[in-house]
Simulated assay, not measured.
Amino acid sequence: MARFKPLTHRLPSLRNFSFECRLDAEARQVDFLGTLTPAWGGEELARERGAAPPERSGPLWDGVRAFCAEWAPEGSPLHARAPCIWLEFDHDRPAPHEPQPFTTVCVQPDYVHRRMARGALPEGHPIRGTVWRSLELLAQGSLEPEIRRALARCFDEIPTGGALLHVAPTYARGTRSIRLVLAMPSRKVWAYLSRLGWPGRRADVERMCEPFQSSSEVELYLDVADGLLPSVGIGTGLLEPDEPRIPLLFDRLIAWGLCTPEKRDGVVAWLGEDARVLLPGLRVPSQLLRWATLKLVHRPGRPLEAKAYPEFHVRPAFFD
């Protein structure tokens, strides 16, 4: 929290926020993610074009501002097609290094209500158009042709029941690739990766899916350059209090040595909600929701890694 406090003074208004926590015994790095909508943070950043404050300077922030300038106006296509974005800040280097935003765009217009456009995204599909425009704005230029071709193949091959959720350029991490996050039934993950020529083993994918077998679908994280890169992530959607999936999921992670009992207890203790809380600066109570998601990350030549994302959501509390 000491690391996050100075960071929060550099951020625009946030709708929600979350943390990225590694679950193995030795891991200490914790990263911060903030959610923006057009009204929460988007308009604020859009107004900064040409007059950026020093705490939000540099090409990555310029790309976020360019995106927000087109996203914030109510009549714009992006406003209707991208409900939110996330700014993630990796705390992997010691102070005084200032982390830069790793920006993820949600490309499902009705994501908030969990109504997804599913299946392949052929050329001309509105979501595909949202992807191209978002990446061009964030990068302040056109995508490399080979990356665009590789992404197009990923979109063409999305299986029935699958959905592209989010896209993110990885430039903040010093690489020229694009992160894709998709949702699909776990039984379809290997076939999808195989069609795309993923350079990994089926056994690794099946092992990563095993802890999530009680979920109806998983989230698949891919990095795309001129083809699929070897790293891949598989995770679960939101975990709420008293989730029946929790014991099996954590029992498996602990048995594999990917999570400690203490960190499991911390994630479980986080889950919950407060029905009516009066927050500073507000005149009516809010509902506070504490959820979490989990993800396994496979990198060739390295041990499997488990991560938890405790999330903090604020909603107006409506009452009679």
Score class of each variant (00 low, 15 high):
residue 187 R to T: 15
residue 198 W to S: 03
residue 185 P to T: 04
residue 195 R to H: 10
residue 202 R to D: 08
residue 190 W to N: 03
residue 236 T to F: 00
residue 239 L to H: 13
residue 179 R to S: 13
residue 187 R to I: 12
residue 190 W to V: 03
residue 231 S to I: 04
residue 187 R to L: 09
residue 178 I to N: 02
residue 230 P to R: 03
residue 210 E to D: 11
residue 197 G to H: 05
residue 229 L to E: 09
residue 224 V to G: 06
residue 214 S to K: 08
residue 225 A to H: 08
residue 198 W to N: 07
residue 218 V to K: 02
residue 201 R to G: 06
residue 204 D to K: 08
residue 189 V to R: 04
residue 249 L to T: 15
residue 224 V to R: 04
residue 189 V to K: 05
residue 239 L to F: 15
residue 250 F to H: 03
residue 206 E to W: 01
residue 199 P to S: 07
residue 226 D to A: 08
residue 195 R to K: 12
residue 194 S to T: 07
residue 233 G to M: 08
residue 199 P to H: 11
residue 207 R to A: 08
residue 236 T to W: 01
residue 247 P to R: 10
residue 203 A to D: 14
residue 242 D to L: 11
residue 207 R to T: 11
residue 238 L to D: 08
residue 210 E to A: 10
residue 212 F to H: 09
residue 223 D to V: 07
residue 235 G to E: 04
residue 227 G to E: 06
residue 217 E to R: 05
residue 233 G to T: 05
residue 231 S to G: 14
residue 225 A to D: 09
residue 243 E to F: 03
residue 218 V to P: 05
residue 214 S to A: 12
residue 236 T to G: 10
residue 252 R to I: 02
residue 230 P to D: 07
residue 231 S to R: 09
residue 212 F to K: 02
residue 249 L to R: 02
residue 230 P to A: 06
residue 245 R to K: 08
residue 215 S to N: 14
residue 233 G to Q: 10
residue 216 S to M: 04
residue 193 L to R: 13
residue 192 Y to R: 06
residue 194 S to I: 08
residue 231 S to F: 00
residue 254 I to C: 04
residue 219 E to K: 12
residue 213 Q to V: 10
residue 232 V to C: 09
residue 180 L to M: 06
residue 195 R to A: 14
residue 235 G to C: 12
residue 244 P to H: 15
residue 229 L to W: 14
residue 191 A to P: 06
residue 214 S to R: 12
residue 246 I to F: 06
residue 203 A to V: 13
residue 234 I to A: 11
residue 203 A to W: 15
residue 252 R to G: 04
residue 206 E to D: 15
residue 223 D to A: 12
residue 203 A to P: 05
residue 239 L to D: 02
residue 246 I to D: 00
residue 191 A to E: 14
residue 227 G to H: 01
residue 192 Y to Q: 07
residue 204 D to G: 01
residue 215 S to C: 12
